[in-house]
Write a protein that binds this DNA or RNA. Structure first.
Lengths: 141, 141
DNA sequence: ACTGTTTTTATTCATATTTTTATATATGCT
DNA sequence: AGCATATATAAAAATATGAATAAAAACAGT
């Protein structure tokens, strides 16, 4: 299923080959499910208030009221920011009593980070192993 | 101790600020609307068309017309997306003749990547984690 | 100078986001 | 039950975004 790499990418560096592999399985496996997911994640991260909230939650889990306290804006606005972060799966909210506790959920950040990793340096990676893995995965579909 | 707060992240050079101001002098009033660097980067990454453009540029530098070719939308829309990517410093555009060449500029991606690194122990990409991730993605279809 | 190519800008429209204020809901306490 | 606390939702206003179309601008070749 995986096309012949040598014929497709004649004189490109291994790094570029890897990058293109990443690109390929993204188009194949991610175009629907993950694309909308990355939309939500990056757009949630694009707001400075929300990034600051995430930074605060890095220290400790917090209740909604405590999250809102250092900000100038209204509690309702913060509540909506928290909903955006929850929809992006960047945080989890768990209700205990009347208090809703907010804590980081690392999965979404990892997902975005993994996507971005395709644009960085991969020199320490085992390219052959990844190729073989992707090939196995695509064939088993 | 807390490396991820935006106020601790003033990595915008005066020259860059100046460039952005010059870019938008017609539309933006200088005092209020100065989006931070991470605002621009994440909000640029939040659009699937722009992410796909970046993936295409991984393979090779491209002219604006060639970037627009695989998309359904108009060339003018793609031009606007490229401007957003340029403002976020995710790409660089260099005019040679009548053709404007677009190429990736890794610095901004690295900047966002560095910020995100504070939220996980994913400081290096281990293959097992990536494979597990790909597997999860494929299964979830 | 004329012509075709490449790219940007202007205008307009629909839709989405961010925020405030006011109101509603849910929970714990006495 | 009544009251204070914690959070969410609704309505509304300002602003931003994404896209189309049409026009303009920059440039190469003849």
């Amino acid at each position: 299923m995986l096309p012949c790499i040598d014929s497709l990418y004649p004189k490109i560096s291994p790094k570029l080959i890897f990058n293109h592999l990443v690109d390929d399985w993204m188009h194949i496996s991610i175009s629907r499910t993950m694309a909308s997911s990355l939309d939500l994640i990056f757009s949630a991260l694009a707001d400075p208030t929300r990034r600051q909230i995430l930074s605060m939650l890095l220290e400790d889990d917090m209740a909604v009221t405590d999250v809102a306290e250092p900000f100038e804006m209204s509690l309702a606005a913060i509540s909506k920011h928290l909903r955006v972060l929850t929809n992006a799966r960047l945080i989890q909210q768990e209700r205990r009593g009347r208090v809703k506790w907010c804590k980081l959920d690392p999965d979404a950040m990892q997902e975005a980070w993994t996507w971005m990793q395709g644009f960085g340096q991969f020199d320490h990676l085992d390219l052959d192993g990844l190729e073989a893995y992707i090939e196995r995965t695509l064939q088993s579909e």
